[in-house]
């Protein structure tokens, strides 16, 4: 192997992988049930309302998924401090000038790969590439927003303390109507994000050949190391 070897690197620890798939499942569930809440379809029910709780279930699933989604997200935030260096917060947020310069350079390279489809230097990053990291951070903000607005609305129907911690958002945004509109719009962010995200991991897997996809299952990536 002329000057380069392929190494197996344990990148995604179990909590990260677990987080990822639980999260993906929750988001999918929340988007589907949320869409149904926003735009209910006609259910061919025969008989009286008292025999059916179809829509009640849709909402119930939304709320269960919401709690799982939220605590899963909290877990990931914790792991951003406790986990290995690939799971760390500085992978998403360039908090020092040096990191910023480094990630900026890499992000430009990634854009060349993604948009110009040019072949460039292999990624320095072993975990997320810089551009991916940034968009994931964006998605974290969206998770937060969705949780705050969701629990804010939920507070009115719940006696639990958790939703009530978010009740302030409703007057702040001018009422439930506005909160719901934003919550609904944000669903589209997740749909579009997921489309692009899934496509790009396949694409990168393909052009980089580092086993990107399987890494989210097993944790290992294949990384080229120069001698």
């Amino acid at each position: 192997m002329n000057g380069a070897t392929i190494e197996r690197v344990y990148v995604w620890q179990l909590p990260v992988r677990l987080y990822h798939w639980v999260n993906a499942a929750c988001v999918a569930t929340l988007a589907v049930t949320g869409y149904m809440i926003g735009r209910p379809m006609t259910v061919p029910v025969i008989g009286e309302a008292s025999f059916s709780y179809f829509f009640g279930w849709v909402r119930f699933i939304h709320f269960v998924a919401a709690f799982v989604f939220f605590f899963n997200f909290l877990g990931r935030i914790y792991w951003g401090f406790a986990g290995n260096r690939y799971a760390h917060w500085d992978q998403f947020l360039p908090l020092t000038p040096r990191l910023l310069r480094k990630q900026w350079r890499e992000a430009v390279e990634v854009m060349k790969v993604d948009i110009l489809q040019a072949k460039v230097e292999p990624m320095e990053s072993v975990g997320h590439n810089a551009l991916a990291g940034w968009t994931y951070f964006l998605s974290f903000l969206a998770f937060l927003f969705q949780s705050v607005t969701g629990f804010g609305m939920y507070a009115a129907m719940s006696d639990a303390w958790l939703p009530h911690m978010f009740a302030w958002i409703v007057p702040l945004m001018g009422g439930d109507f506005a909160v719901r509109q934003w919550h609904h719009m944000m669903m589209w962010f997740f749909i579009v994000f997921s489309m692009i995200h899934v496509y790009l991991v396949f694409y990168h897997d393909y052009v980089e050949g580092r086993g990107v996809i399987s890494s989210m299952a097993g944790g290992w990536k294949f990384v080229e190391r120069r001698k």
């Binding site: 209910p40 259910v43 008292s50 059916s52 709780y53 179809f54 829509f55």
Partner: peptide
């Protein structure tokens, strides 16, 4: 109850 049952 109609809402919960999906009757619109």
């Amino acid at each position: 109850p109609n809402y919960d049952a999906g009757l619109f």
